[in-house]
Amino acid sequence: MKEIIAVVRMGKVSATKRALVEAGVAGFTASKVLGRGKLVKDPAVIEARKQELLALNKSKDKQEAELLIDTFLNGVRLFPRRLFNVIAHDEDVPRIVQAIMAVNRTDNQVGDGKIFVLPLSDAIRVRTGETGDSAIW
């Protein structure tokens, strides 16, 4: 058994849920989290993303919007994300990981998320007391 932990963009939550269901996942948990990944060092990528975010911003105060965007891009602020936890049989992991990757990959060059796969020693279904593989499906 494995635990798959996926950190995805908030805007990709529905697509990720749909992909997990289509991949045959029996169940999963999703939580709202805050975090950040590696800082982007390429000034061209940062400036392009900043201009894109400014164009999307509907705020009347452009100076405030620019400050908020700068603090997101320079690492001062945390990004809202969604954390998915999936328990799966070992043989199902590649299919599930591929499904998550397929719907979360963007052309932004940054911030598409992370997937972690961890070994799981046991699972117990509370209702029946089943353990191991039978407890997750």
Rank of each mutant, 00 (worst) to 15 (best):
Gly129Pro: 06
Val97Arg: 01
Ile87Leu: 14
Val33Gln: 10
Ile115Leu: 04
Ala102Phe: 02
Val126Gln: 05
Ser59Asn: 12
Leu73Ala: 03
Thr106Tyr: 11
Asp122Arg: 07
Val76Ala: 10
Glu66Thr: 07
Arg95Lys: 15
Glu91Met: 10
Ile96Cys: 05
Asn85Ile: 06
Asn57Val: 08
Phe116Asn: 00
Asp92Ile: 05
Asp70Phe: 06
Pro80Trp: 06
Phe116Glu: 00
Arg127Glu: 14
Leu34Thr: 13
Ser31Leu: 14
Asn108Arg: 14
Lys32Phe: 13
Glu64Ile: 13
Val93Tyr: 05
Ala88Pro: 01
Gly113Asn: 07
Ala88Tyr: 03
Val86Met: 03
Ile87Ala: 08
Arg81Tyr: 08
Arg127Gly: 08
Thr71Lys: 15
Asp92Pro: 06
Gly37Asp: 02
Val76Asp: 12
Ile100Gly: 02
Leu54Tyr: 04
Glu47Thr: 12
Pro43Ile: 05
Leu78Ser: 11
Ser31Phe: 14
Lys114Phe: 06
Lys60Ala: 15
Val117Ile: 08
Asp122Gly: 12
Val25His: 04
Arg105Gly: 02
Gly129Ala: 10
Ala99Arg: 01
Ala30Val: 15
Arg95Pro: 08
Thr106Gln: 04
Leu54Gln: 08
Thr71Glu: 13
Ile124Lys: 11
Val93Arg: 02
Phe84Trp: 09
Pro119His: 11
Ala44Gln: 09
Ile100Tyr: 02
Arg77Val: 08
Pro119Cys: 09
Gly111Val: 02
Arg77Ile: 00
Leu83Trp: 05
Val45Gln: 07
Gly24Thr: 13
Glu91Tyr: 07
Glu66Gly: 02
Asp133Gly: 05
Phe72Lys: 09
Asp42Val: 06
Phe84His: 01
Ala99Leu: 06
Pro43Tyr: 13
Ile69Tyr: 11
Asp42Met: 07
Leu67His: 13
Gln98Gly: 07
Pro94Cys: 03
Ala26Trp: 03
Thr131Pro: 03
Asn85Glu: 13
Ala135Lys: 06
Ala102Trp: 04
Phe116Ala: 04
Val25Lys: 03
Ser59Val: 10
Ala30Tyr: 08
Ile46Ala: 09
Lys114Asn: 05
Lys60Gln: 14
Leu118Tyr: 01
Lys50Pro: 04
Gly113Gln: 01
Glu47Gln: 14
Ala30Ser: 15
Asp107Pro: 00
